[in-house]
Design a protein around this nucleic acid. Structure first.
Lengths: 248, 248
DNA sequence: TGATCAAATAAATATATGTTTATATAAATT
DNA sequence: AATTTATATAAACATATATTTATTTGATCA
């Protein structure tokens, strides 16, 4: 897939969540922005720092949010892909409360923070689009608390795979049923609150049941229906009905 | 503590997060609302239903959000107290994605949903107040994913107690260092992703270390410094600096 | 007041997941 | 191509937490 034009990425993002008029579009097109590329594992945001003067929107590649405990353990709390804002979570907060890292090479649009703040507060349609964005993020967090707190290893891992598959498809990044999940087993372990060793065991068992195929540091989900049933996956929490243009 | 006037509760809530002018205050005072009381364990919101026509703001008492897994396990994902909105999470979503239950008797103000939507989108100061509210909720969810995913039982439980203490104090509901935590051990278990039996064991050990005193179905936190250190608690994620009037 | 019910405590046992260490495989680097 | 490094796999063992069942304590209610 080719790298889209940054302005188009922004317009498409806002339009995916709410109906805009010409004035909205014009205001979005006039947002000051710069492009930036992050390498795998690069820190895009750091806990404890004041928010950066720009807001990051992913154009290509994948990123994740994480927190570190006092003992140094890492918990990944969400994944992000094309069209996701990485900085919306701090748009009106005075301090960064978690870390964001690039998972793969990330091409991003960095939008001027105060211009975006004004846009969100002053233009109701844009405001609504960003509200939906933020509220869906919250919903996903609630699902993750539940996933990590109350599901066993198999279910938990299958659930994360299903979520990723659905979001990939919704972002137009997934073609066939098999799709790639560009995570190491260590990263997956940090996302589901297990150890890398146990994730390996569990992936082997999912592979033995022909649900996934681990392949070159990526996981391929090959049986959606089985995965969905193992994961007890219900996509309600992703609020996909609130995406106006899922495959554009 | 006496039950405050609903209008004052609303004004105070919005003013705690952003500076308002007279027009804002007037708009808030003219919000249509009704009062409602919920009994312990009553469902205030139900997953899978369309959002109710009103938004619930807690005046007195405590509530919690929870999700149920396919196997029937319950995960509590947050607690709420005086001044918290229970419905903000669905203000712009078409479907309720989790359940909310009263923990104690809850006195609430139910604000007309579409009026609140308009207020939030059309009045930048009010909008900003609600943004801060929603973003802090998100931050708390991230901390809970981390708590449940990467901390052991003692730390995990102590962390929830510390969070509760800090929020109680910030809401002006806590006087001395010892304070009450009105949860059964089963509810606490569902909040930290453990079993009731293990929560009991762990509470006993915290009691043996003189950090807490279990007392009449409530837990009293009696040694804040010790609890904070056992929990490795850092209040950054609560963004207390963004509350303008913490003890009013 | 006693009866009933919900919650807390206790102890024994089971198990899912963690820990440690070693090896194999694949990717990256010179 | 050879070397180094990161990741995946494997097996043995350790342990934190789960499960089950019983008892006790404290609330609630007829």
């Amino acid at each position: 897939m080719s790298v889209p034009d940054p302005s188009e990425t922004m317009i498409r993002k806002f339009e995916s969540r709410a109906r805009l008029d010409d004035a909205d579009r014009k205001a979005i097109r006039s947002l000051p922005f710069v492009r930036h590329t992050y390498h795998p594992n690069a820190y895009i945001l750091r806990e404890g720092e004041p928010p950066r003067p720009h807001c990051v929107l992913v154009q290509t590649g994948f990123a994740f949010r994480q927190k570190l405990t006092a003992e140094g353990a890492r918990q990944i709390v969400s994944f992000h892909l094309r069209g996701d804002f990485l900085d919306l979570q701090h748009l009106f907060l005075n301090m960064t409360d978690h870390n964001v890292q690039a998972l793969t090479e990330v091409d991003a649009v960095c939008i001027d923070r105060s211009a975006l703040q004004r846009l969100v507060l002053d233009r109701p349609s844009v405001g609504k689009a960003m509200w939906v964005e933020a509220l869906v993020d919250s919903s996903v967090y609630r699902e993750w608390v539940t996933n990590v707190g109350r599901r066993d290893a198999q279910t938990r891992i299958a659930h994360v795979l299903c979520e990723f598959a659905v979001r990939m498809k919704s972002a137009g990044l997934k073609d066939g049923p098999p799709f790639e999940f560009p995570l190491t087993q260590e990263q997956l372990a940090d996302a589901v609150g297990l150890t890398q060793v146990h994730v390996n065991r569990t992936l082997r068992s999912l592979a033995a049941e022909n649900i996934i195929v681990p392949h070159r540091r990526h996981i391929t989900l090959c049986d959606w229906d089985k995965a969905k049933s193992v994961a007890a996956f219900n996509a309600l929490y992703l609020h996909l009905d609130q995406i106006r243009d899922a495959t554009a």
